Computed example of a mutant assay.
Amino acid sequence: MTDNNDGWDITTNLGATALAVAAQRAAETAQPNPLVRDEFAAILIDAVNEPGWQAMAKGDLAWMGPDDDVGRRTARAGRDYVAARTVFFDEFCAVATASGIRQVVILAAGLDARAYRLACLSGVEVFEIDQPAVQAFKDSTLRAHGATPTANVHPVAVDLRDARWPEMLAGAGWVESAPSAWLVEGLLPYLSSAEHDRLFGVVTGLSAPGSRLAAEVYHHSTRHFGDQRLGKWRDGAAGIGQALDIDVDVTAFIQHDDASDTASWLTQHGWAVESLDSRDEMTRLGRPVPPDLIEIAPASSLVTGVLPLP
């Protein structure tokens, strides 16, 4: 990750990406027939006390100009993407725990509340790795609201760029000899190719046979995340930021040298891999991307891997 991200909190630099995702989850929860229910997302957004994020979290798109039809539909498609992505990772957790895995590691956890809302994680050891300021905000906010996790939550307050994070993970009670389920959501666009390979190299080295992994992958060299799509994403983000009076450009932190193919990397390093296009997943869930927004709406590969037993 880029060096200028040192010391961010929940409202600055990459920390704001966690707010954006939480606001989208809250907005989806507010829909008549939501794909996902995350009541904790609105609690976390309210605690920030910034009108722009609170307006997004309401889910009614009233903050968009009434005459900006494309903007409203693009914002809705972005919300649908986050909802479908959330379902993908939720279902991954259910499959992993059903397979017998009892420890889950969430890399760059942000404001993820799965440990509080997923029944499949009841009694499971969940390790949440993220910046200390982000961890402190989430933990104190949910505790103040009397939220009780279904899982046994272990915050690991460390930047993933810190080579000591595996040591700190073990210090929090994670057991290397037991299989793990790894969640890599909303992280990879901000890693260079070298950082990508190093991260997955560490994760693979730490993974006991039977471990599972799920990752959201943007391919820079394809229509998932090429220069044209990135430009449209930046323009759209600027419009949303202006409408909400939020001065955050998360696209500024995207690493353009990342030519890594995560699925291929995992396959070459012993994982049994499956990959699906997020747009296919959105269609499966009844939220297809409108044809005229195919080149604007977010798109990624949703990758799962299993480290086979001997």
Rank of each mutant, 00 (worst) to 15 (best):
E295N: 12
A297V: 02
D162G: 03
D67A: 12
A119W: 09
S221M: 13
T148V: 14
P209F: 02
L302H: 02
K138M: 05
E185L: 02
A259D: 15
L191C: 04
R287M: 04
S275R: 14
P34Q: 08
A113N: 14
M64F: 04
I246R: 05
F127R: 02
G236Y: 08
I254A: 10
A157I: 03
R117K: 12
L142T: 11
Y190G: 01
F225G: 13
F127N: 08
P166L: 02
I246Y: 05
C120N: 10
Q242T: 15
W165F: 03
W63N: 09
E176N: 12
F127M: 05
L160F: 00
R102C: 06
G239I: 05
F253D: 13
T148K: 13
V306I: 11
P308S: 07
A238N: 14
G236H: 11
A243D: 10
A157W: 07
A18W: 06
V306P: 04
T222Y: 10
V248C: 04
D9I: 06
P290I: 06
L302A: 01
R25C: 06
Q242Y: 11
G78K: 03
T222N: 11
G239T: 11
V48T: 10
S180M: 04
V95T: 14
D46G: 09
G123R: 06
A147C: 12
E274I: 00
F92Q: 06
Y190N: 07
A151R: 07
L121Q: 05
G201T: 06
P132R: 09
Y81S: 08
P66Y: 02
H219T: 13
D67T: 13
V48H: 10
A55V: 04
V158L: 03
P290G: 03
F92I: 00
D280T: 14
G110N: 08
K58E: 14
A214F: 03
G123Y: 08
E91C: 02
S180P: 01
S301P: 00
G241I: 10
F40E: 13
R223Q: 13
